[in-house]
């Protein structure tokens, strides 16, 4: 099994601790002028997303996690699994509900997502930062209001509900930031 010593630590490195994959968020080298050196790290659990602090004696080694990030095309869901495909090799991967999490509501067929694989199994899915989605349901807009001053909820084709300006009507396509869930603009067709 591959491993890293503390001198290889840097942000982004993927390590295995207590059976879980982690990414190093921050690494600080702590050493008294005379005395034992340590590496104080902030690490993110790639399964739960939680960030915790750990300390390693400098020079110690830790197992590497076989984690890779890759782009895949979202194909479809059968209700239980969400299916993705590597565009270059056509290899398909299925991700369950716990892996997809909240991201499911942004997934539109054909969109390219960032898929993190751990031991060749999907660990997490990141939808595109910006997606264009059609409004399937919203209250009728107020005539003549193009200011965008107010807002109303709109249900999108993937099931996500976002606040949109009053002038947006059913059938229109809007551009949304998936990280904040915020409406950006009308999509330019």
């Amino acid at each position: 099994m591959a491993s890293y010593t503390t001198s290889q630590f840097k942000a982004g490195l993927k390590i295995l601790l207590d059976g879980d994959p982690y990414a190093i968020v921050e690494n600080e080298f702590v050493k008294p002028g005379k005395g034992q050196a340590f590496n104080r790290v902030k690490i993110r659990n790639l399964r739960s997303g939680r960030v915790v602090e750990r300390t390693f004696k400098s020079g110690d080694s830790v197992e590497a996690a076989d984690v890779i990030e890759t782009e895949m095309q979202y194909l479809y869901t059968d209700g239980e699994f969400w299916h993705f495909m590597k565009p270059d090799s056509f290899e398909q991967y299925a991700a369950g509900k716990t892996v997809i999490g909240d991201g499911a509501k942004w997934l539109k067929e054909q969109d390219l997502c960032k898929v993190t694989l751990w031991n060749n199994e999907p660990l997490s899915i990141e939808p595109p930062a910006h997606v264009n989605l059609a409004v399937v349901e919203t209250d009728p807009g107020l005539r003549g209001d193009t200011s965008g001053g107010g807002g109303k909820p709109a249900t999108l084709e993937t099931g996500a509900v976002v606040q949109v300006p009053l002038f947006i009507e059913e059938g229109e396509v809007v551009r949304v930031d998936t990280r904040s869930g915020a409406y950006i603009s009308r999509a330019k067709e």
Binding site: V30, P32, G35, F38, R54, T55, F56
Partner: peptide, 27 residues
């Protein structure tokens, strides 16, 4: 609570423990 792991902690000698406490908790 410093997240060092039991084995790593046990592997430190007394001065190593003092250095750990000094550099993480005191300094």
């Amino acid at each position: 609570g410093l997240g060092l792991g039991r084995a790593a902690l046990a592997a430190l000698d007394r001065d190593g423990l003092l250095d750990l406490l000094l550099s993480h908790r005191v300094v």
